[in-house]
Design a protein around this nucleic acid. Structure first.
Lengths: 114, 114
DNA sequence: GTATATTACCTATAGCCAATAGGTAGTCAA
DNA sequence: TTGACTACCTATTGGCTATAGGTAATATAC
């Protein structure tokens, strides 16, 4: 088996999925496409990443699922719960803090050594 | 045992360590402090993260180690190799791409759904 | 008619990063 | 001599994510 590429980041898939669902209800396959398109292929989450994540978030009460039949196909539409909104806010805050931290280290790494 | 916090990101510790060592040679304990200070506590990597990372990077030829005795204490000073510089460039590029991808999704998640 | 591509869902396995929790040893101040 | 700080280290655990599959329906092409 080929050695898998290293994961580039943790927590971000969850952040992105929650953010998309904060805008409107979506189904898994749609989320996979939206992340790929909206990030211009910078972030590509396979279905094997998104579906288990959705199930985990659902199990934690972060979102609600509703199955619907559209054009002969079953779709599971997800929607953010209040808990999911809270979680999203936390992740956005953490992302911002980390991003700033990385930025300051990349730009001026000597600041920490004074 | 307390449930450990989830990792907030992968590849970033490596990025930060390489970036610091690109500026000047440093030793492990100093790196731990520099990351904490320069990021204003946004990113705190314990010694148990940094030391194994340094050893792994050393084993991969990303950096060179030189032991030195300073004020009665042993310090292992690390320096970036050419390979390490290359790796740093790659990680900086990837960080930029991912950061932009996350940014566009956070700001305008509907772009991907047209 | 039957391949192929696309949509849409799913699970199992494996790898690796990082977080925790320890440990050793030297220096210095109270 | 106790505590605080410096400076190094390892073992274990856990969780995220990547891969690699699988099912089934629709639409298109040949």
């Amino acid at each position: 088996m080929k050695k898998p590429n290293p994961p580039f980041m943790t927590g971000v898939p969850e952040l992105l999925v929650l953010r998309l669902l904060a805008e409107r209800e979506m189904y898994g396959y749609e989320i996979v496409r939206a992340i790929r398109l909206s990030s211009r292929d910078a972030i590509v989450l396979a279905e094997g990443v998104v579906y288990p994540l959705l199930h985990a978030l659902d199990a934690k009460g972060m979102l609600t699922a509703k199955e619907r039949k559209v054009e002969g196909r079953n779709r599971v539409y997800y929607r953010l719960s209040a808990k999911g909104h809270k979680r999203l806010d936390d992740l956005i805050g953490e992302w911002g803090r980390v991003q700033e931290g990385v930025h300051s280290l990349l730009e001026d790494p000597s600041r920490g050594s004074i």
